[in-house]
């Protein structure tokens, strides 16, 4: 395994609330993305996925912990951030909103070049990025406006806008969630091809485990600001260990688990994270009494933050080490 390019260590992001309290959107995350690796970050809405992505991009400042790129910790001076943003690019969920309706596709793709003052062979670079993103012949799209393109073509234009700066990592926030099912496959295939051709690393944020299965090498499952399980995607999805992951996997069409598990309750408020294991109030194992052996620890003991070990399959659950010992 190559050494990680982008990594987060003990990352925490707090937001001040109007009442004076704080909400921890991200509360202790270790995560690595290596070149040529696609990592999926999955979890339900409101679990802090997008905040984590924004923090990795330097759009949000970490309250605790650090983000580092190429071994160097991220510095937040204007100049350092600008240089960083050449290497790490963002792809947003909704390509319609991500393109200024007043700008042509050429302008939208060239925007990154203009921001970074790259003026040589602008048209050539734009054409190259468009064709790598699958918009060919590129010249045909130069003068189109976003509203003249289909949803899939728009997302390709957004991807071209990211590729034009030759980034080494792409962070994609629900890149296909707003697209038609028929187009999703094409965009995912494009991401895979870019990974192979350009050795591009990617962090793909999704709430769709099926999508993670089809494109990711590794997956991290996030719950209430913390990663509760991570590992190679086929291991995590065929042998889920954390009760939360099990619940998510159990409702997939071809789930390895016998029956669907429906979680009770709602995702708790990030301002009031339950004590002990943060998943306990909704945990089916705790509720059914299967976790009775460790119930005391579930109630009082917070779990350690999972290390960012790329090859290991790990989960943050008091129950798990005991079950493994029993199995062995």
């Amino acid at each position: 395994m190559t050494s990680p390019l982008l990594s987060a260590r003990d990352l925490g992001v707090d937001f001040g609330l109007p009442g004076g309290g704080t909400a921890s959107a991200v509360d202790g995350v270790n995560l690595d993305v290596a070149p040529g690796e696609i990592v999926a970050l999955a979890g339900e809405s409101g679990c802090g996925k997008t905040t984590l992505a924004r923090t990795l991009l330097g759009l949000e400042r970490a309250t605790r912990g650090s983000v580092s790129f190429g071994g160097e910790p991220l510095r937040y001076s204007t100049k350092a951030l600008k240089a960083y943003r050449r290497s790490v690019q963002l792809i947003l969920q909704d390509p319609t909103g991500a393109l200024n309706p007043r700008h042509t596709i050429y302008d939208a793709v060239a925007e990154g070049l203009r921001i970074h003052g790259i003026h040589d062979d602008e048209a050539g670079r734009v054409a190259g990025a468009l064709s790598r993103a699958g918009l060919r012949p590129a010249e045909k799209f130069f003068l189109s406006y976003p509203h003249e393109l289909s949803g899939g073509q728009r997302q390709r234009a957004v991807i071209a806008g990211a590729l034009v700066l030759d980034p080494s990592i792409i962070i994609a926030d629900e890149p296909v969630a707003s697209l038609d099912a028929s187009v999703r496959g094409e965009i995912l295939a494009l991401l895979l091809r870019l990974r192979d051709e350009m050795d591009l690393g990617a962090l793909v944020i999704t709430h769709d485990l099926g999508l993670a299965w089809s494109i990711a090498d590794r997956i991290a499952i996030m719950y209430l600001g913390r990663i509760v399980e991570q590992g190679p995607v086929e291991q995590v999805l065929t042998d889920p260990r954390h009760p939360y992951t099990r619940a998510l996997v159990s409702v997939l069409p071809d789930s390895p688990l016998p029956e669907p598990i429906v979680l009770s309750g709602e995702l708790p408020d990030a301002a009031r994270i339950p004590g002990g294991c943060r998943f306990r109030p909704r945990c089916q194992e705790f509720a059914s009494g299967r976790a009775s052996a460790v119930a005391g620890r579930c109630e009082s003991e917070d779990l350690a933050v999972l290390p960012a070990d790329a090859s290991r399959h790990d989960s943050a659950c008091h129950l798990h080490p005991i079950e493994r010992r029993a199995a062995a």
Binding site: T78, K82, R86, Q89, L92, A98, L99, E111, I115, G161
Partner: peptide, 14 residues
């Protein structure tokens, strides 16, 4: 609040 400004910021726009 429009996403294209978020995109511009992520591209490094001042």
């Amino acid at each position: 609040a429009r996403p294209y400004l978020e995109r511009a910021r992520a591209l490094g726009a001042g």
